[in-house]
Design a protein around this nucleic acid. Structure first.
Length: 294
DNA sequence: ACGCTATCCTGATCGC
DNA sequence: TGCGATCAGGATAGCG
């Protein structure tokens, strides 16, 4: 389940290898993922140059500059990738003919790097929860996914005023608030569970009941957990791997996620009953009933 | 307008 | 051993 640290890690691994590359050919094996891949992708992006890679929320964005055949001005587009639950983007430095597509390999980009090397960039996604889309870069903020989207958790925008105001505005519990992408982006089930555990706040607490002191803990642990996950290269549970196929290591550092029944790492033995699991909004929440009281 | 629920999908795992 | 049931959950349409 690629969340902010996983997408950022993939982006950082990919960027130095494909920036300034030319997209020579795009091979579409299946066009229906979570939504239809636009039919214009090949026409617009083939023969374009990759200007840069970015991450926004859990989206990986690839900025391209087209190469019109006639004397027209180039146009700037962004190819958007979302990895859903099981998406991977894998980079291999091989010629196109050296490898036939694997199962669940839906799209393959054949690139030529700055040193004329051949690069095969493939999008694989067994569960097809991901998406690939295209829009004009300057119209990015009109793109549906980016309208009404919250702020980046590692930016200065995440501060006490912002958090207090939005917690008051919201009428849900803290787990759903952090997961919704409406206030803060990039957090998924794993990191929300880990953040609430370290902050010592029960996931079912109503947002309106969160004190200023608790806000300060959230403001500390949201970036802290994300940065620790980035240092470890993300969390590899099922499908997530880096663009070179290697795994992240943060799953070893999960304190509560997926650890129902285990002892709470922060509690002294005795009264703590260990990690519990509840369902909120159809999703598992892992927490310590001793540290995180309702 | 907001919050909640169902939906999409397949591989891994569990229980009989 | 085999096979059906269950679980995992990000974003979003649709409902109340």
């Amino acid at each position: 389940m690629p969340e902010l640290p996983e997408v950022e890690t993939i982006m950082r691994g990919l960027a130095p290898k494909i920036e300034k590359s030319k997209i020579c050919k795009i091979s579409l094996k299946r066009t229906k993922l979570r939504k239809e891949i636009p039919a214009s992708l090949q026409k617009i992006a083939e023969n374009s140059q990759i200007i840069g890679l970015r991450r926004r929320a859990k989206y990986l964005l690839c900025d391209i500059k087209t190469s019109p055949l006639d004397a027209k001005k180039p146009e700037y587009y962004t190819i958007l990738f979302h990895l859903g639950m099981s998406g991977r983007i894998l980079l291999e430095e091989i010629s196109p003919e050296e490898k036939s597509p694997e199962k669940h390999e839906h799209v393959i980009f054949f690139l030529e790097g700055i040193k004329k090397e051949k690069i095969r960039l493939s999008y694989r996604d067994p569960r097809r929860f991901g998406m690939i889309d295209l829009y004009k870069t300057k119209e990015e903020n009109l793109y549906p996914s980016f309208r009404n989207m919250g702020i980046e958790p590692l930016s200065q925008e995440l501060n006490l005023v912002y958090l207090v105001q939005n917690l008051q505005k919201s009428k849900t519990n803290l787990k759903n608030f952090l997961l919704s992408q409406k206030y803060i982006v990039g957090l998924g089930n794993i990191y929300v569970c880990e953040i609430l555990y370290k902050a010592g706040i029960h996931p079912a607490r109503l947002t309106s009941s969160i004190t200023e002191e608790e806000c300060q803990k959230l403001l500390y642990f949201i970036p802290e957990i994300l940065k620790a996950a980035l240092r470890a290269g993300g969390s590899s549970l099922r499908d997530y791997v880096h663009s070179d196929g290697t795994k992240g290591g943060f799953q070893e550092l999960h304190q509560v996620y997926g650890r129902e029944g285990e002892a709470c790492p922060d509690c002294e033995t005795g009264t703590c009953p260990g990690i519990k699991r509840i369902i909120q909004g159809g999703r598992s929440s892992f927490f310590c009933p001793e540290k995180q009281q309702i």
